[in-house]
Amino acid sequence: MRPPLPLPPDDGESRVPGILLVRTDSDDDVWEDVLWRMGELPGMYRSDQGDAADAVARESIPRRLIVAEDPAWRGATSEDVSAALERPGIWVPDLVVLTDDRTVRNADWRPLLAFRGSDGYAFWITPRQAAMTYLVPDRPCLSSTIDWFSETAPAEFELEEDEEEWEPDEEDLWDLYEPAGVELESLNAPPRYTQPARELPPLIQQADLLVRTDFTDDAAWASLVERVCRPGRNDVIDDFGDYVDFVDDPAFAGATPEQVMAQVHPSTDKEAMNSDVVLIADATTMREPGHRVLVVPLVDQVGFAFRVDPEVVGGMVVNLALGNMDIDDWRDDEA
């Protein structure tokens, strides 16, 4: 009989969102590779590192990553983990991810088997994509993001009603569906969260945020703000300043995109209109010709950043917020 998972008591109405990561394989090198790819995530709790409540209390935005690595859970299945989550009075994670034999065999992606802590279909996700999703636990659209993962990377094949019976083997299934997050794992510089040198303040997303992380050129920053607010080629909106909040706080000097996105907290104001991205003016933005702004999505392919010209930022965030366009309409895959 397996021991209880190291889950804290139920939080009740003040429930903390988060992920449960369970080690079910026995390969130490693979396990360390998975943990490294996920990064030094905030609110992370390992059973030998203190109390789970203390880990959450240290964070400006509450979230919880429970890492279960008890050898007694080696060889466990998703059904075993699901059954353990039925114990009354415990905290149930938003997402459960498990290592298994596919994680061991695929050194390029290290796919993890994932499912909702309460219910839902199993799907495959890479460690980086799981980590980036963990950084935005309180997004209003998080549930739809997990739905999107389960639809695009299902762990089991389902035939349509008019299709002939077919039982695909594992290789066929992997040809049909790549794990969510393959794009992140394939980047030349894939995202990875590291702990900031100092605590960063929360970023309340009342409007869309453009966060300055490079403070070497004030004139370049002033020019960037002007180009975003008044691109000079829009007949409908003359000034996008009402739609973008410019964060010029030296506390974010040198912050990575992952550190910035981890601090974004949606507004409680139901009238607030913003898109599910955070904009960053980093060293590349400030120093390179064109001053292209970094766009970091907070839903779907969370953390899969790209750049746009300052003049299109206002139109992009307005159309994303209104639902007139989606993120793929603005991403330049060649950039």
Rank of each mutant, 00 (worst) to 15 (best):
F215M: 01
E160G: 15
Y177M: 05
R192V: 00
N188A: 14
P190Q: 01
N188S: 13
E165W: 15
E178A: 15
E178W: 10
Y177T: 09
N188P: 00
L184D: 08
R212D: 01
P196T: 02
P168K: 06
R198G: 00
E199Y: 01
E170Y: 15
E164R: 15
V211N: 05
E163A: 11
T194L: 10
E165F: 14
P196A: 05
L176M: 14
E161I: 14
L200V: 04
T194F: 11
L187M: 09
D162A: 12
R198T: 12
L200Q: 06
V182R: 11
L209G: 04
A189V: 10
L176G: 04
Q205N: 05
A180I: 01
L209I: 02
R198M: 05
R198E: 12
D208L: 01
L176P: 00
E183F: 00
Q205R: 10
R212W: 07
E163I: 09
L200D: 06
V211K: 09
A207I: 08
E183V: 02
L187R: 04
E185M: 08
L176T: 07
T216F: 05
L200G: 03
L210T: 03
T194K: 04
D172C: 12
E178V: 12
E165M: 12
L210K: 06
Q195L: 11
D175Q: 13
L176S: 10
W166I: 09
N188T: 12
D208I: 09
L173A: 10
P191S: 00
Q205K: 11
D208V: 01
P191Q: 07
Q206A: 15
P201I: 02
P191F: 07
E167D: 14
G181S: 05
D175K: 14
A197R: 12
Q206R: 15
E170P: 00
E163S: 12
L184R: 06
N188H: 13
A207L: 00
P201K: 09
D169M: 07
V182W: 06
A189M: 02
P196K: 06
P201H: 05
Q205F: 04
P190L: 01
D172W: 10
E160L: 15
E167T: 15
I204C: 09
E185C: 08
L210I: 10
P201W: 10
E170V: 15
L173T: 08
I204M: 01
T216R: 10
P190I: 03
P168E: 07
D172H: 13
D175H: 13
T194Y: 08
P191N: 04
R212C: 01
Q205D: 02
E167K: 14
E183G: 08
A207Q: 10
R192L: 08
L176W: 11
T194P: 00
R198V: 09
R198F: 00
L176Y: 10
P179D: 02
E170W: 15
E185K: 04
T216H: 06
E178C: 07
D162N: 12
L210N: 08
R212L: 05
E165V: 15
E161D: 15
L209N: 03
P179V: 10
E171P: 00
Q205V: 04
D162P: 12
L210W: 11
S186C: 05
L184I: 02
